[in-house]
C-alpha cells in the first residue's frame, strides 16, 4: 500500500490531481479549506491507492508526496 501526504497550505484546489488519478480516489474537499481559501485535495480510500504518483506528477504546486 502506498502512503500519500499533502502539503495542504500549498494546495490551490485546481483539481489536476483529481483528473489524473486512474483509480478516481481524489476529490476536492467541500468543507476543508486552507489559509489561502482554497478547498484542498483529499483522498477518500487510501487503501486502494496503487502509488502510481500520477497525482503528484500532475500537481503544479508540489503538494503531494507518495511513499511506497
Amino acid at each position: 500500500m502506498a502512503k500519500l501526504s499533502f502539503n495542504k497550505p500549498l494546495c490551490k484546489g485546481c483539481g489536476l490531481c483529481v483528473t489524473a488519478c486512474p483509480k478516481k480516489l481524489l476529490s476536492l474537499s467541500k468543507t476543508e479549506s486552507n489559509a489561502n481559501g482554497y478547498f484542498v485535495a483529499v483522498i477518500e480510500n487510501e487503501e486502494a491507492c496503487i502509488g502510481c504518483a500520477a497525482c503528484a506528477t500532475m500537481c503544479p504546486d508540489c503538494v503531494i508526496e507518495v511513499e511506497r
Binding site: L16, C62, E65, V66
Partner: peptide
C-alpha cells in the same frame, strides 16, 4: 520510479502561479 518526492533543486518558496497554471 518509487513514489514521488519534491526535488531538492526547487526551494521551499511556494509558487505564486494561479491555480492549475
Amino acid at each position: 520510479a518509487k513514489g514521488f518526492k519534491k526535488t531538492k533543486m526547487l526551494t521551499d518558496t511556494p509558487f505564486h502561479y494561479c491555480p492549475g497554471c
